[in-house]
């Protein structure tokens, strides 16, 4: 797919977001990935041009970060955390179930190009282990059966809600968000869930609170 003039303009705008254009390289690569479903050599060259670097320099960056893929990812990116916490708490079984369901191994697309399966690293959600991601949106506390069902529903085109985020769109849409974070979805879903509130609720139930501002300072504490 050729890079269009409007894409080139967008790349220039991303460059202009920063004091120096090269800083825009990462969002630029997210943008071309959102448009092409992967980071192609043409996409890299277009980013390089906008960032004012050589194609080799942009290639060096694109190949350093694991989220940039150099094969078609397909409609949905499916990640399963298999780092120690998630993996040992069941992520390994989730991954195996998905691998069997999708007929594909690590970091590869399914034959029909619908899904990409990847053993991913820690998602900063160990409290919600085992964690799976669909298009990088959280699907917390999954089981093998739940994970397979998510894939089934995605395949049937049904709406799947992230456990802490909006309804699943697709891989390209998430990549678009990474280039343009203001995607209008901040109010969607329930990003603050029970596990994030567990301590607060225990504190409230137990009448525990942070101490107030000690005298003689004026009571300017942020009120509740």
């Amino acid at each position: 797919m050729a890079i269009s003039e409007s894409t080139r303009e967008q790349l220039q705008q991303l460059a202009a977001r920063y004091p120096r254009p090269r800083s825009g390289l990462m969002p630029m690569l997210h943008l071309v990935q959102s448009l092409e479903g992967e980071v192609t050599p043409e996409g890299i060259t277009a980013c390089a041009d906008a960032a004012g670097v050589s194609a080799a320099e942009a290639t060096a960056v694109a190949s350093f970060y694991t989220m940039y893929k150099r094969r078609q990812v397909g409609q949905h990116h499916i990640g399963v955390c298999v780092n120690t916490m998630c993996g040992l708490l069941g992520g390994d079984a989730v991954y195996e179930a998905l691998s069997e369901r999708l007929g594909v191994g690590h970091d590869a697309p399914t034959d029909d190009g619908q899904f990409w399966l990847e053993r991913i690293e820690c998602q900063a959600a160990c409290t919600h282990a085992p964690v799976m991601t669909v298009d990088w949106e959280y699907m917390d506390d999954v089981t093998p059966a739940a994970a397979v069902e998510i894939v089934d529903r995605l395949e049937r085109g049904e709406t799947v809600l992230s456990t802490r985020g909006p309804a699943i769109r697709d891989f390209r849409a998430t990549e678009q968000t990474l280039a343009y974070p203001e995607d209008g979805l901040a109010a969607e879903g329930t990003p603050v869930d029970d596990k994030m509130l567990v301590g607060l609720r225990i504190a409230k139930e137990g009448g525990m609170a942070a101490p107030g501002v000690p005298a003689p300072s004026a009571p300017t504490g942020q009120e509740g």
Partner: peptide, 30 residues
Amino acid sequence: MPLTPVITEHWDDPELFTISGYRRHGGYRA
């Protein structure tokens, strides 16, 4: 030792992520 919610004190307000919700709890006064 008791729990002391400060940063997390108002997380149970689903509007905390908005500026109005945050300000309702004293946000931006600092």
